[in-house]
Design a protein around this nucleic acid. Structure first.
Lengths: 345, 345
DNA sequence: TTGAAAGCGCTAACAC
DNA sequence: GTGTTAGCGCTTTCAA
């Protein structure tokens, strides 16, 4: 039943010793061409597979990386994981998944098991509820390479891969301006999260660049949800001088805005422009199709893995961790919801 | 830097032997209350963490399960993984992810590394391109528990968790009938996949149950894509006696159908009813919102894990694998695209 | 070129 | 109750 073939078995079969078989299997120098071939054939024939556990114990490596995400159910993270796993695969690494459910306690548990599994490195996206980062610092203290993706914290000096939220927001807002909208509102996200703060800043910067004053009453603070979008529109349309366009911090919020505008019989994009952020899969299928900013999810996963590989290589040779940060370019996807003029800009 | 604390360190610190420390840490009988406490305190103080690699080598277990999915980028699988991981987490297991990209070669590679990593069990969803299953059988031969989810193959006698596609299709078709549609078409998927075949059967069965003849010309064979849905509608509307409703094998196909119908100015649901399968996230956000059949993704993941746990437990005690198959009930989500009458049925 | 021996960190048998 | 010993499967000195 459990036909586990070991190096010892091969050695016995060929009247050799384990050491030689090991050398032959790993193509180490110091084995005759002849024995090497013989051993490898025997291994094949006997259906031998190297035991990675034993190998790990001996070598101190696992060829496993740990990935902490808030939830595999969120599209965005599934997509990043896709990028990570495909790269890992190519490089002989395996990927261990852990979901934080946005809770720091789970993050800690995940890190705990990752360290105890001796993963070669960790990729993580910080949980929304996490305000204190000692568990992440412990990873570094242990000498295990760590890279943040998407949700990073710059003050920790830990390498990261993020999308340029500021620039994305700038693009989105600028696009609305160029489409001729005059009063552009923003539905902002929770400001303790850097990504959402950056988007607010980008929005303000774009307005400023075009000489448009930023009006506090046009910035609605909500969160990422359809409801928040609806509420925002209800609020904004009641203003004495209501806006004629909105940049929403995230696509679900934008979706709520669209739904509410439709309910209130406001024409999109003729009377009111809408643009979101994230390029969710539903964007192109709703009516009108929703303009958005793509976050390069798969690319993000790939870059994160690549950066981690570098750290692992560096750590092995010098023990010095190169600090670095990769910022990906956001890609605008302008669709119907914001195209008032015929031209695309 | 790499402050790895081992059992030996604790033993030395307390003038004990490794065995005793191990016993104390694992709360084995045969240690005095006193030493146990002392050891556990020391472990805490010295920041000891059990090395799972060494433990695995010794115990022959890893507390890791391997999961093979076609792609983490596909919503459906992200959602199932979410279910699997949350259960695994609760039970002290970790989850290794491998993407097959729908290719049997990748499946083989994944199985290879899983076996070599000595995972305690494997969950898998078969790749579309896979026609030959020896690599799956090898898992069983090795004595490693295996459970299929969603894409299973009944002839292999391997336990599985699937949704009742036949019944789901039956529900969908019956719903259209009850809504008063008279000529109901079906856009079918690739028939070498059991799940799609079952849906076709369910469609036929529902028609038969209501005394409606199955007309071959109303069954369009396409695949799962927006384009296929569009082409199907183009074809169906040209028929001498065109249908007035369609059950599409999958939501993206249904989406294509909806888009084409709208382009051709056919009113949904007044003139034409549409229902899909999968309950994709975009369903409720498009106009009209799309009726569909929910596949219980998260539940599927949870059940698959539970079943795997049973197999692992069984295997340890008796070595006998209980054959079993869990069939989940599909849940209809009737929305605007198929509700011609006011009443929901 | 090959073999012998040690050890990665842990735990289970068996002694004391 | 605690210590001694051995071994999980592998690789890597050091010797031959």
């Amino acid at each position: 039943m459990n036909n586990k073939v070991t190096i010892a078995d091969i050695a016995k079969e060929l009247n050799l010793t384990g050491a030689t078989v090991s050398r032959a299997l790993n193509n180490r120098k110091g084995t005759s061409e002849e024995t090497r071939k013989m051993v490898q054939e025997a291994a094949e024939r006997m259906n031998y597979r190297r035991d990675r556990i034993a190998w790990s114990l001996r070598s101190g490596r696992t060829n496993i990386i740990g990935v902490i995400i808030p939830s595999a159910e969120i599209n965005f993270f599934g997509s990043v994981v896709h990028g990570i796993e495909s790269m890992a695969n190519q490089h002989g690494y395996n990927v261990l998944i852990y979901q934080s459910n946005e809770q720091p306690e789970y993050e800690k548990k995940g890190i705990e098991t990752f360290l105890s599994t001796r993963v070669d490195g960790i990729l993580a996206s910080i949980a929304k509820e996490t305000m204190e980062f000692s568990h992440y610092l412990e990873i570094r203290e242990r000498g295990v390479p760590l890279v943040f993706f998407d949700r990073a914290n710059d003050s920790l000096n830990i390498p990261s891969v993020v999308v340029d939220d500021y620039k994305g927001a700038y693009y989105a807002t600028e696009h609305l301006i160029r489409q001729g909208y005059k009063r552009i509102a923003h539905i902002a996200g929770q400001q303790h999260l850097k990504i959402f703060k950056d988007r607010l800043e980008g929005y303000k910067a774009a307005l400023a660049a075009y000489g448009i004053p930023v009006e506090d009453e046009l910035v609605y603070f909500g969160n990422v949800s359809i409801d928040a979008g609806r509420q925002a529109i209800q609020h904004l349309l009641q203003l004495p001088s209501p806006p004629d366009a909105v940049f929403a911090v995230e696509d679900f919020t934008a979706l709520g805005a669209v739904k509410e505008l439709k309910d209130q019989k406001v024409e999109i994009p003729a009377e009111f422009g809408v643009i979101g952020f994230a390029n969710e899969s539903f964007d192109e299928h709703i009516t009108p199709s929703l303009s958005s900013i793509d976050q390069q999810t798969v690319q993000m996963g790939k870059e994160a893995f690549r950066l981690l590989m570098e750290l692992i290589a560096d750590g092995e040779s010098t023990g010095v961790q190169t600090r670095s940060k990769i910022v990906l370019e956001p890609v605008p996807r302008y669709r119907q919801s914001s195209q008032r003029s015929g031209k695309i800009s």
